[in-house]
């Protein structure tokens, strides 16, 4: 604030000297010479140098091969063989597993996040909303790995949850969840849930109470108000949340490593092992490229499905209005 005041003060200082005509001319000239994107050049160059070029390298590697026991990659013969290899049965099962965890995890996040976000934005007392947002955000900004280790402690067969369930006679033996696909699913839903809740909260909050009240005044019940007014208006938030959760979830590496064991393998680990242990950069690159393509394709399919689903609803909506109009 004091800086802003100082800023305006100094900005007004040149006022006594307006007759200095020349300064304006070079200033205008300079503005013409400097391109509009000049300030974005450093960031753009940095991202090109350390994001675009490396990804391009990966794509290039993916057409090569591993030249021998000690080489990591070679590109003198180009082929699509690495892609064929990436789709071989062993790796394909992992891709399938990843896609299953990705879709199921995103759906579960949506299922849990929707009522939570709705409660935060609509039902909770307005004074508490800031606090609730903060509470959802704190887990998101604490260390990803540490949170996941927390789940390892909870789900361990010799952990407290296991003994609690056994004392209550809810399970026969020790808890057998850790190092399975279920554990990975719990972990990813937990880890990415805040990414679903926050955009949904923003979307529900933006709808505002007046439209809901109007809908009620026009005779719609709560459910109808929710499905016909709140939900369609919150669609951007739903889309944002789904994409925000699905993309990192598909590339997840930490959750699967900590909670998954052998049964919960995901593509992220596969790619990592090609680079770290197998030293086959060509195959690892091909897998990484396939992962990006699978993600892009799935997001495309989801968008298409969402659009197709919304078509009949829109048509019906209009039909109802017409009926009522007639």
């Amino acid at each position: 604030m004091p800086e802003a005041l100082g800023g305006t003060a100094t900005a007004s200082r040149p006022v006594p000297a307006p007759p200095a005509g020349p300064p304006t001319a070079p200033a205008a000239g300079r503005r013409l010479r400097v391109p509009r994107f000049a300030l974005a050049v450093p960031a753009g160059a940095w991202l090109v140098a350390f994001f675009v070029v490396p990804i391009g390298t990966i794509v290039w590697f993916s057409f090569g091969y591993k030249p021998g026991l000690f080489g990591t990659h070679a590109n003198d013969v180009l082929s699509l063989d690495r892609y064929r290899e990436a789709f071989s049965p062993t790796f394909f099962a992992t891709f399938q597993n990843t896609l299953w965890v990705g879709v199921a995890g995103t759906a579960l996040c949506l299922l849990v996040g929707m009522p939570t976000a709705y409660w935060m934005a609509v039902k909770a007392p307005p004074r508490r909303r800031g606090l609730l947002v903060a509470l959802v955000m704190v887990p998101y900004w604490t260390n990803f790995l540490v949170r996941t280790i927390g789940w390892q402690v909870i789900l361990a067969p010799q952990g407290w949850l296991s003994s609690l369930l056994q004392t209550l006679h809810l399970t026969g033996g020790p808890l057998d969840v850790l190092y399975t696909r279920t554990a990975v699913l719990i972990g990813v839903v937990y880890n990415y849930l805040p990414l679903m809740i926050l955009p949904l909260f923003v979307a529900f909050d933006r709808v505002g109470p007046s439209l809901r009240e109007a809908s009620k005044d026009l005779g719609a019940n709560r459910w109808r108000t929710f499905t016909r007014v709140t939900l369609p208006l919150a669609r951007p938030g739903i889309i944002a949340g789904t994409v925000l959760v699905f993309i990192p979830l598909m590339g997840d590496y930490v959750t699967a490593t900590v909670l998954g064991g052998a049964k919960g393998n995901m593509v992220g680990q596969l790619v990592a092992s090609q680079f770290q242990t197998a030293q086959n950069w060509a195959l690892g690159s091909a897998m990484a490229v396939v992962l990006i393509l699978v993600i892009a394709a799935t997001v495309g399919v989801i968008a298409l499905l969402g659009w197709l689903v919304s078509l009949p609803i829109r048509a019906r909506h209009r039909l109802v209005l017409d009926e009522e109009g007639a």
Binding site: P248, G268, L291
Partner: peptide, 11 residues
């Protein structure tokens, strides 16, 4: 995905 960032940055 971060893993893609990571494997491309290393080489």
């Amino acid at each position: 995905p971060e893993i893609v960032d990571a494997v491309s940055l290393l080489p």
